[in-house]
Every structure is written in structure tokens, then in C-alpha cells.
Design a protein around this nucleic acid. Structure first.
Lengths: 219, 219
DNA sequence: GTAAATTTGTGTTTTCTAACATATTCTTGA
DNA sequence: TCAAGAATATGTTAGAAAACACAAATTTAC
């Protein structure tokens, strides 16, 4: 992703700096909630953030994951809607914010900034459309394999080239791959038995990427 | 939705007109296909268009429906990706197109045009995120009820205030609501027996909207 | 106008996954 | 340090939806 900051002129940078504030979020603390009015553009500086939406009977679906430095929370403002999803910190995170009305003013005077958001929104929309098909058509094993590969791609691996840099609860893993917590645990166990991954508490080592890809594609 | 045309200056309108071409599509004819490179912004002038994506084992998911006058086919270009979905005419349709590189040039010189696309993309993204939860968490009855209400909202009703203005195959109805054709037919029949709708071939009359809403919400 | 193909309709079976029920381990806080 | 709660683990059951099979009706093509 290209960087937003480098797009701005010195004068614009000054305006942003003057209206920028930094906030610290504890583990599991919410950044914003569904149905609220969007006011700020958020930028994740440090930590990990999940965007999620609750559906039928308190069941939660994780829609997107953010890593530093990514921007979020702006869609609803641009759509003139309330938030349709919530955002919360996965772990202790540092997040900056700027008022959206200011962002909108800047966009009206800077075409490159406009293109930045057009590009971001377009990529997210493609991802969401793909997710619709993946989550509705793949079976449990395929969905979990895909989620694991997504985590590896999104947050990367430790120096051992196999341990996921993100540690999440089985419940979150289930919410990400659209299944019950029980089934996430169960399927994780079968993956261990098939020597695709090694699990140590919440630390997950991915040891057979090609096979996981195969399961993700056809499972 | 605000209109794109009225955003343009006279000079921009002239440029668009000079590069605009109109095409006629037969029923079920494809406008573009998954994996192709996006070249044009399409505008549906007359008819109905579906955007869909094929997933595991030729199973198709309808992602979005377009009516006149709506713009489509631009996301992949802005994302610098190939199309992740296909578009086809539901019925005989008239569709205009403009080269995307021209659209991009216009955006770089017209902030209101940029905001038009930011707004459109933002609304679509919200819709996709909501669809993810609806399709994965609702049961068959809920998904079909939702699809019927969506069709009413999107294409409207005949003068009798109840007959859907769009006629689609049971297979398409199934693709829209993420189920097999058999189950779409079966569930449609139960809705008829419950006096929620009246079916005459592909013509569907919606006669109990509140109950359908209830089923859509909790089913 | 008739045959072939497609679409619609319905019953049966099988598979998958959620729901439920516990047990065990791990955290957390008093 | 211990108790209480949360998270993880695993077995069992019930329910939902796909898969399959076929019949009837409708459309299309020749």
C-alpha cells in the first residue's frame, strides 16, 4: 500500500499534524462500535486491530484485520452511513486519529489523496467480494486453512519462518473462518494430526503451506 | 445515488461524449469476465445486469444487481487488479462505456468526480460486508426472504404494488441467496403455502412484506 | 409441429455442521 | 495459594442443507 503521508503537501501535513491525536488501546478494547456515527479516520501505528460485525444471535464475523501502518474507519463516513461493523484492538495498540471532515476537505484539494482512498476502497471491496464466495462455498477445513494462510500473509511469520506472528483465541479464529469455536478447535487438532501445523497454546506453526493451500482451494 | 454526468464541466462532458460508445447486450450475454483486465467504465442505460463470481465447483454467487442508471466495472481498474467477478445482462440491455484511463484522468482534475467514486465504493463495501454476515449466518428461509426483499427494493414493483419487476430463473434466485436450485424451488413453494408470496412461473408477487422481513431477520 | 433440451418440481438419502454436554487445563484475582 | 472463571478439548446428538434421482412442464431449435 502506498503511504498517505507522503502524498500530502507541507501545508497539508501541518494541518494534519495540528489535528492529529494519538490514543493507546488495551487488549480487546473497542475503537468504535456498530451503529455509531463515524467521526475519525483511524491509523494503526502499533499493534493489531480486528474489524468485525455481529449477526444472528450474537454470532460474530471478523471481516478484516489491520496491521501498522493501515488506515481504517473511514468507509461509513464516505458512505454517509453509520458504522456497519465494529473495530477492536487484538492486543495493546497505538492508534492515531484525524477528524473525517478534515480528511474530506483535504481530499477536495488533493487528487492524489482522493486516488489513495479510491484505491484502498477498491482493494477492500474486491477482498470482501472474494470473502463472500470463500465463506459461503468452502467447507470447514477449507475455511480454516484459508484463515491460517491469511494470518500468515497479513501479519507474517517469526524468524523461524513458520510461527504465526499473531496469537489469537480459538474463538477469534472461529469468527474469522465462520464456524463454531468447537469446530475451530476440532479442525485445528486434525490439522495437527495431519502434520500441517504445530500448535502450542495460541502459538501456531505452519509447516505444510502447499497442502494447506490445496485444502483451502478445494476443501 | 447522485448522478455522475451532472458533476462534469462542459469541457469534460465533451471529452466523455467523444469517447463514449453504446453497446447492446442480449439476454445472458456477458459484459466482462473474471480474470480479464479491466478497461472500461460501464454504465447501464437500459435493462438489468448481474455481477457474479464462480467459486468451488462451478457454483456461482450473485454479488450485486444493477439497474439504470448505474455505473460498474471500475473497481478492478482502481485496485490495479484483474476482475474478480463477471458481469452479464439479465435481459436485453443497453450499456455505455468509457475507457477507464480517461475516467482516471478526469478524476485527477475533478474532485467532485473523485468523491462520486469514493462514495459509490464506500456504499458497495458496506453492502458487501453486510452480505458476508447475512449469507453465512442466516438459514435458507432467511436468505431467500432477504433476496426477495432485495429484488423488490432494487428493481421495484409493478403497478399492482406487489409483482416484482424482475423475472429470474430459480437457478439465479438460488445463486443470489446462496443455496441449491432445488432448495430455492422448495423454499419458494413453502412461502407460497404460507401465503407470503404468489408465484406464476417466473413472476413473483410479494403479498406479506412484514412477515418476509421477520423471516429475513431471524431465519 | 415435433423432438430435444432446459427448467421446474418433489421425494429420498447422505453429509456436514451446529448444538449440547462435560471434562480438563489455563488464567486471573482475591 | 487457592478459588472462580475462562479457554480449550472432545464426544454425542440433532438438524439443516447438499447431493442424488427422477418426473413433469416449459422452452427452444430444427
Amino acid at each position: 500500500m502506498s503511504d498517505l503521508w507522503s502524498i500530502l503537501t507541507p501545508e497539508e501535513k501541518r494541518i494534519v499534524t495540528d489535528n492529529f491525536s494519538i490514543h493507546h488501546f488495551k487488549k480487546n478494547q473497542m475503537v468504535y462500535a456498530e451503529h455509531e456515527d463515524p467521526e475519525y479516520l483511524w491509523v494503526l501505528l502499533k499493534g493489531k486491530v480486528k474489524m468485525y460485525k455481529s449477526g444472528v444471535g450474537d454470532r460474530v464475523q471478523i471481516l478484516r484485520l489491520y496491521r501498522p501502518v493501515q488506515y481504517f474507519g473511514y468507509r461509513a463516513y464516505f458512505a454517509r452511513e453509520q458504522y456497519v461493523s465494529s473495530a477492536a484492538a487484538f492486543e495493546m495498540s497505538v492508534i492515531g486519529c484525524i477528524p473525517m471532515d478534515l480528511v474530506e476537505k483535504l481530499i477536495m484539494g488533493n487528487n492524489d489523496l482522493a486516488m489513495f482512498f479510491i484505491h484502498e476502497l477498491s482493494r477492500n471491496l474486491g477482498g470482501s467480494d472474494t470473502k463472500i464466495v470463500n465463506l459461503t462455498q468452502k467447507h470447514i477445513r477449507g475455511r480454516l486453512a484459508e484463515a491460517l494462510l491469511l494470518l500468515a500473509e497479513n501479519y507474517g511469520l517469526e524468524d523461524d519462518e513458520s510461527t504465526l506472528k499473531i496469537c489469537m483465541s480459538r474463538e477469534d479464529l472461529a469468527s474469522l473462518s465462520n464456524m463454531t469455536t468447537s469446530n475451530a478447535i476440532r479442525t485445528l487438532t486434525t490439522f495437527v494430526n495431519e502434520h500441517l501445523i504445530i500448535v502450542d497454546g495460541r502459538r501456531i506453526k505452519i509447516i505444510n503451506v502447499p497442502q494447506l493451500r490445496k485444502i483451502s482451494k478445494f476443501g
